[in-house]
């Protein structure tokens, strides 16, 4: 039993925070807390493997959450908070890349691909509008032979 207890204490030391829902981190104002939680989903936990700070239990995610919560409390707008984070940690910190010239390809591609698809479909339908040429007498005879032979 002693060994068990010692190991469990060791385990507790490995564990860090409980993610964004940890009650010790929460803001007292519910509206502010809700805003912070929405923002968390857009911020990457930089040391994790593709997790937002809303999900992550890592120490660094906890630090980032604290920064965001403090800024929300101080009355910064969402855009200001994003700018602040980008200035500090680079674009990598945002899970939703910003609408910028550098990211134009990313944001415009879906629309462009859809448009190309639409144009191709329109072309396909227009081509179909032209009636197929009627069969020549020779061909009709061949069709008859084939059908009868079947």
């Amino acid at each position: 039993m002693k060994r068990l207890r010692a190991l469990l204490i060791a385990a507790a030391a490995v564990a860090l925070t409980a993610g964004a829902s940890d009650p010790s981190e929460r803001l007292p104002d519910q509206a502010q807390e809700a805003r912070a939680r929405t923002l968390f989903k857009e911020v990457r936990c930089l040391v994790c493997q593709n997790e937002s700070i809303d999900d992550s239990e890592a120490q660094l995610a906890g630090d980032l959450r604290q920064i965001v919560r403090e800024q929300v409390k101080a009355g910064s707008s969402d855009a200001q908070i994003r700018d602040f984070l980008v200035e500090r940690y680079g674009e990598f910190v945002l899970l939703k890349p910003r609408f910028s010239m550098g990211n134009a390809v990313l944001w415009l591609a879906p629309v462009v691909v859809l448009l190309v698809g639409g144009v191709l479909m329109a072309g396909l339908l227009r081509r179909r509008e032209t009636p197929e040429p009627a069969l020549s007498q020779d061909e009709e005879a061949r069709v008859r032979r084939l059908l009868e032979g079947d």
Binding site: K41, E42, R44, N50, S52, G90, E91, F92, V93, L94, L95, K96, P97, G102, N103, V105, L106, A109, P110
Partner: peptide, 23 residues
């Protein structure tokens, strides 16, 4: 594109970006 974009951007101008669930 969303999956590969971080690689593309990194190759283009060395900028590290993330593309996650919100995108």
């Amino acid at each position: 594109l969303g999956t590969l974009y971080p690689l593309i951007r990194e190759a283009m101008d060395g900028e590290a970006v993330s593309v996650g669930a919100p995108f």
